[in-house]
């Protein structure tokens, strides 16, 4: 048995529900840190950023599932739906903190969405996530059929790019960390370009 196969045996042993529960605990843990004063003296901003980064990281993992399998044989496919739904959950938490704790006013939040490009872009990413979250279940998969379902879920690439651009634009200067995430996302999306795929296959 190769190393990749051994890893796959272990990955398959992890039940889906464990991924959901452990994943959902992370924002709860962050919230506890923020409320108990362990996220610094300005916890609203710290929590908002921590949740945004968590969503970004999870989206990168989701994007990496296919290339990882192709290049190393390690397959996380059995947990891809859970990871995708967790990323959606993290984005919802990030948005909730922004709206309820930070801006604290729906009218002002709407004005920000319309007026400030980095918020517009982040919000566009969230809106595009909605159909993906709604169709991340067996019934929707059956109803749409695999071809149409896959076509809908190519939106993931657009969403990840929007998320990374949002992260870069939130900063006041060109910071390294968000640019690294943007580069990662672009590289992972590029592995899906048909031309590259053909070259890799040749």
């Amino acid at each position: 048995m190769t190393a990749a196969q051994r890893v796959n045996v272990w990955v398959r042993k992890v039940p889906s529900w464990a991924v959901y529960i452990l994943g959902a605990m992370i924002p709860v843990w962050y919230f506890w840190l923020a409320v108990s004063g362990q996220m610094g003296v300005e916890p609203i901003n710290a929590l908002e950023r921590a949740l945004g980064l968590l969503a970004m990281q999870t989206l990168v993992v989701v994007l990496a599932v296919t290339p990882l399998r192709r290049w190393t044989g390690i397959s996380l496919v059995s947990h891809r739906r859970a990871l995708g739904l967790l990323a959606f959950f993290y984005v919802c938490c990030h948005l909730a903190v922004w709206l309820l704790l930070d801006v604290q006013d729906p009218g002002r939040a709407w004005a920000d969405i319309v007026k400030r490009p980095y918020i517009t872009i982040g919000m566009a990413g969230f809106v595009l996530l909605l159909p993906l979250a709604a169709t991340s279940n067996d019934r929707a998969l059956r109803k749409l059929g695999p071809v149409r379902w896959r076509r809908v879920h190519t939106l993931t690439y657009v969403i990840c790019v929007l998320g990374a651009v949002h992260y870069v634009m939130v900063q006041k200067v060109w910071e390294i960390e968000p640019l690294v995430y943007l580069a990662l996302v672009l590289a992972l999306v590029a592995t899906r370009l048909p031309r590259l795929r053909r070259r890799a296959a040749a």
């Binding site: 923020a34 409320v35 004063g37 003296v41 300005e42 916890p43 609203i44 929590l47 704790l101 604290q104 002002r108 004005a111 920000d112 007026k115 400030r116 980095y118 006041k172």
Partner: peptide, 22 residues
Amino acid sequence: VSHPRWRQDTERRVGGGLFSSR
């Protein structure tokens, strides 16, 4: 005068915790 990134009509006083009002 609104800043391109942040509204400037309200602010948050540091130290108010997770539920501090603007």
